[in-house]
Design a binder for these strands. Structure first.
Length: 638
RNA sequence: GCCGGAGUAGCUCAGCUGGUAGAGCGCCUCUCUUGUAAAGAGGAUGCCAGGGGUUCGAGUCCCCUCUCCGGCUCCA
């Protein structure tokens, strides 16, 4: 048989030859260094046979940053970890140990709990294994034999995995350790040049909290020590962008245990908030939304009608009052629907778009709070659009266009996800066919790349979510656009159609930034605290050189209205005051002394770029930095 | 809610095996009046998260609670 190499050359091989055989046929060095073979673009274990006509490409230890090559390295590292743990902790049961984005983990059921201090000795044991040398071999066995084998070893988790595994059962063995595993694995442990255990955590068996909690050991591995060092360095830098750290450093907000998950916004943080709020109002007005205000607390009766009482009560803050109970709203929808339902509505009023950025409260489970990204007070840039069936696609399109406008304004990279009908749902399949198609059509019409999350929609309709990552790579949901064909009827929303009959409107729930709290958290990390001019808490700082320049500096600052300008007339040296402004990440510093005048301002941008401009020129430059002043008037793209 | 870790000055952190608390930055005062990332000198600052216990004596050891951190689970 023949296989095709990347340069299109054909390689003649005996029937049934493996990837490793092919590598040997090309050269001993390649065979030694190969870690996997890509067949028609898909990774395959070197030990598996190739077939006639397949296009092959070898990845070697030199492809040290290739995700597939790292995956193999880390998968094998996980097996070394399991071997070490079994040797050091007799009686431990092993569960699963896959490679993940930046490393790998392995889940164990320890007879006695272990702590972080144990990691060091486990790590040493793995290093010893690597030094001693390990080779992996692969075998395929019958399902029954696999069950017997793991029962004999008293490995109940493995038995369960064999039971639910699909396809052939394969085993990989290194040293005296054999694991149920689909692969792929290295030929031997030599390529593992850097190995590090990074953490310890609890994790439920099969990700279900009703199951037993296992101990998960996280680690990472690289093809070189330098790669590991670089990875740790990147992590360190990412921590410097962490909004929780920057929030305190830049005096934006703080949290206090007197009200967990509820930030205190300091003056500088409030400036950012208010700029976002101004943007929200300006855009909403331009895009045909009406601002409304609805109560913060409602009688439990409303939540019973909306369905929240049944589904969301655990997350609601309740206020008992004599013989009935109020609840602080965790969402705006019921209030907006009450508002809609208060009058007899005509189809001529639709689409009707209600916007409200009210503070919502959600009693999140203890242990889930996280800086600004997981809070108990959630101020969504919320809106509800009441529309007819025919208007759905256009309205979804409008939401997506708006979302894109907001994200582009900040240069944020987001991913759109379409979530479709869940198993547990209400409504006929034809209805879901229609609504899912409408959402997809809107996504395509707006030209957005999106992924599909099958079965992850709400029980009342499909949705489109926007996700972003924080500085440490954790994904957070930001915006959401959801179609709801159920709640409006429950609250009693209806309108009179052209046919003079009563109809229930569809409602689109949508928040684009998501919440101000989370959005500012993500923005802080995105900009590493150096906010763009238009939302910077302090936009310009004027530094009078000496005492005699202070009055002129104040005049200059006044002349720069309405920008947010401060004069730093403290006794510190000019050098120190510049440093302070840099540390505070203020966009512009004007040093004002004998050499400066309105015709010649000494301008320093954050980062050190210097320029001399007249006041007029400087103002013209500033105007270009404010999106809606620079002629970027909002417009519906279509 | 679960597993593991941590809470010391406004911030970042030191405080070994128990003997009553420290540094740098910041803050205050004084001197200097500054030219593009740190002038100099002096000073103040703590319920050592909260509560209970062991001890002659607890920041340090034990127990409980709260909060935070890393995960898991959850997340309309």
């Amino acid at each position: 048989m023949k296989v095709v190499l990347p340069d299109n050359a054909e390689l003649e091989l005996p029937e049934g030859a493996s990837g490793l055989d092919a590598a040997r046929a090309i050269g001993p060095k390649l065979a030694e260094q190969a870690v996997l073979v890509e067949v028609d673009g898909k990774p395959r274990d070197l030990r598996l046979p190739l077939a006639n006509g397949e296009r092959v490409r070898f990845l070697t230890t030199r492809d040290s940053s290739d995700p597939a090559a790292l995956y193999v390295l880390r998968h094998s590292s996980a097996h070394l970890l399991a071997e070490a743990v079994r040797r050091l902790y007799p009686g431990v049961k092993i569960a699963i140990g896959p490679p993940i984005e930046n490393g790998f983990y392995y889940d164990f059921d320890f007879p006695e709990p272990i702590s972080e201090s144990d990691l060091e000795r486990i790590e040493e044991e793995v290093r010893r294994e690597i030094a001693e040398g390990r080779e992996w071999s692969r075998e395929e066995i019958a399902r029954d034999d696999a069950v017997k084998r793991f029962e004999a070893e008293d490995e109940p988790y493995k038995v369960e995995l064999v039971d639910t595994a699909e396809g052939d059962i394969s085993l990989y063995t290194q040293g005296d350790f054999t694991d149920l595993c689909r692969g792929l694995h290295l030929q031997n442990a030599r390529p593992i040049k850097a190995f590090k255990l990074t953490g310890l955590a609890g994790a439920y068996w099969r990700g279900d909290e009703r199951n037993r909690q296992l101990t998960r050991i996280y680690g990472t591995a690289f093809y070189s020590q330098a790669d590991l060092d670089a990875y740790l360095e990147r992590l360190e830098q990412a921590r410097a962008r962490d909004h929780r750290r920057l929030g305190v450093q830049l005096d934006l907000f703080h949290l206090d245990e007197i009200s967990p998950g509820s930030p205190f916004w300091h003056p500088k943080g409030a400036v950012i908030w208010n700029e976002l709020e101004a943007m929200r109002r300006r855009e909403n007005a331009a895009r045909g939304y009406s601002e409304v205000r609805t109560p913060l607390i409602f009688d439990k009766a409303l939540w019973e009608r909306s369905g929240h009482w049944e589904k969301f009560r655990e997350n609601m803050f309740l206020i008992p009052e004599d013989d009935h109970i109020f609840a602080i709203k965790p969402m705006n929808c019921p209030g907006h629907m009450m508002l809609f339902a208060q009058q007899l509505r005509s189809y001529r009023e639709l689409p009707l778009r209600y916007a409200e950025a009210a503070p919502l409260h959600r009693n999140e489970r203890a242990g889930t709070l996280h800086g600004l990204t997981r809070v108990r007070i959630v101020t969504q840039d919320d809106a509800h659009i009441f529309c007819t069936r025919e208007q759905i696609e256009d309205e979804i399109f409008g939401c997506l266009d708006y979302a894109k406008f907001v994200y582009d304004l900040f240069g944020l990279e987001s991913s759109f996800e379409l979530s479709t009908r869940p198993e547990n749902r209400l409504g006929a399949d034809e209805e879901w066919d229609f609504t899912e198609a409408a959402l997809q059509a809107a996504l395509e019409r707006r030209g957005l790349e999106f992924s599909v999350n099958e079965g992850d929609g709400a029980f009342y309709g499909p949705k489109i979510d926007l996700h972003m990552r924080d500085s440490l790579g954790r994904a957070w949901q930001m915006g959401t656009v959801q179609l709801d064909a159920l709640t409006p009827a429950r609250i009693g929303c209806s309108y009179v159609g052209a046919d003079n009959a009563e109809h229930v409107p569809y409602v689109i729930h949508r928040a684009l930034m998501g919440s101000f709290e989370r959005f500012i958290g993500i923005l802080t990390e995105h900009y590493a605290g150096a906010f763009p001019f238009w939302i910077a808490p302090v936009q310009i700082r004027v530094l009078p050189v000496g005492e005699s320049h202070r009055d002129a500096a104040h005049e200059l600052a006044a002349g720069l209205a309405p920008y947010r300008v401060e004069v730093d007339a403290s006794d510190d040296t000019v050098g120190k005051r510049i440093r302070n402004a840099e540390v505070e990440k203020i966009p512009f510093v004007l040093v004002y002394g004998d050499k400066e005048s309105e015709d010649a301002l000494a301008i320093r941008e954050h980062g050190g770029l210097k320029d001399t401009l007249s006041l007029q020129e400087f103002r013209a430059k500033l105007a270009t930095l404010v999106p809606w002043q620079a002629g970027a008037e909002p417009s519906l793209t279509s």
